[in-house]
Nucleic acid binder design. Structure first.
Lengths: 189, 189
DNA sequence: ACCTGAACACCGTTCAAGT
DNA sequence: ACCTGAACACCGTTCAAGT
């Protein structure tokens, strides 16, 4: 039994894993087609160009991040636990066969992305930074989220960098160690 | 007049700029050949495979980093100036048409690199971390460089992340702001 | 609505052939 | 020593044709 959108969904699942492992440039419609069990021309029926698929993948990734962060904020956990859970989301990609944040790897390939894909990658970054700024502001009575944005950007950059460097070491423990160091000097407070 | 190694050198110059802008996967021997004024088959004479060129580029990049850092240590500047100059080296890539650290972008493509290229990318990371650990140890009488390596790794990751995120924003000022935030919380001390 | 084969201009790589 | 054209199996993309 197959229902409407199943093939499109299978393409996105395979595409997401491929991009998180090898990046946008290395993504192959022919390999994707083989995995899904169709011909490469059929992939183009669902996603006219590689850029369209990339935009769809990044868009969904940003949506999922938004939902995850909203839930995390509503979880009632303390600040330290919340920040640990935030870092844990990036840890998950590394634990999944040394993959990266989909938008992190696409940021490295930024110049090769068509504008619609860039827009979604930018949105993922914005979702992260704005959530971090609000989370930081929640425990600082006098300060606004707006004023804390520079600090939020720094945290986001530091976490993405930790993932990148840990990936190069093929060692999730390196990510944990870096995040622990960030915590110990108060970057995540 | 052309001397021995001129063509090989021209390939490396063009290749370096291309990788820093678009990454290893997007590098094209045919485009490189056009820029240099030879045929793509001739590029293979100098670098048998794309992986060989990537390894040569990363190897030279690591060598240059090593030389730059040795000079910086010998410059007699204070710690804050030295760390500003360190960040300034990463800033330079961004200022050069929004490019990235050659090894940073290749770390994102780690899974697609042949082993010899990975070795050089790893060496670049090691050169940075060891220099940072020694630099941190120089102003901490009781502590060894070895013991400060976790902190050195965290600094390296944070700087690479700052470059990645600033690149996504196409804004060198974002890099400066992130580094300033790192400084203000004492990450670079 | 969804899939396909065939064609196009690209790509890295190989190799026999040139100078 | 250095370069080349031609070939190979790949790639994204298009399109007329199928069901």
């Amino acid at each position: 039994m197959s229902s409407a959108g199943d093939t499109r969904e299978a393409i996105m699942q395979a595409g997401r894993l491929a991009v998180q492992a090898h990046g946008y440039n290395a993504l192959s419609f022919r390999e994707l087609a083989k995995e899904v069990g169709i011909k490469s021309a059929s992939v183009h029926y669902h996603f006219p160009t590689k850029g369209d698929l990339a935009a769809a993948l990044a868009g969904r990734y940003a949506d999922e991040a938004e939902a995850f962060l909203a839930e995390l904020s509503a979880s009632g956990q303390g600040h330290d636990e919340v920040m640990r859970a935030y870092a844990g989301a990036f840890r998950l990609a590394l634990a999944n066969e040394n993959r990266m944040c989909l938008c992190g790897i696409m940021t490295a390939e930024y110049d090769d992305l068509p504008p619609p894909a860039r827009t979604e990658v930018d949105r993922f970054a914005r979702v992260n930074v704005e959530w971090l700024a609000r989370t930081l502001a929640a425990r600082r009575p006098g300060e606004t989220a707006r004023a804390l944005e520079p600090r939020a950007v720094a945290i986001f950059a530091a976490i993405e960098g930790a993932q990148l460097i840990a990936r190069g070491r093929k060692d999730v423990a390196a990510f944990d160690q870096i995040v622990t160091t960030y915590q110990s000097i108060g970057l995540l407070d």
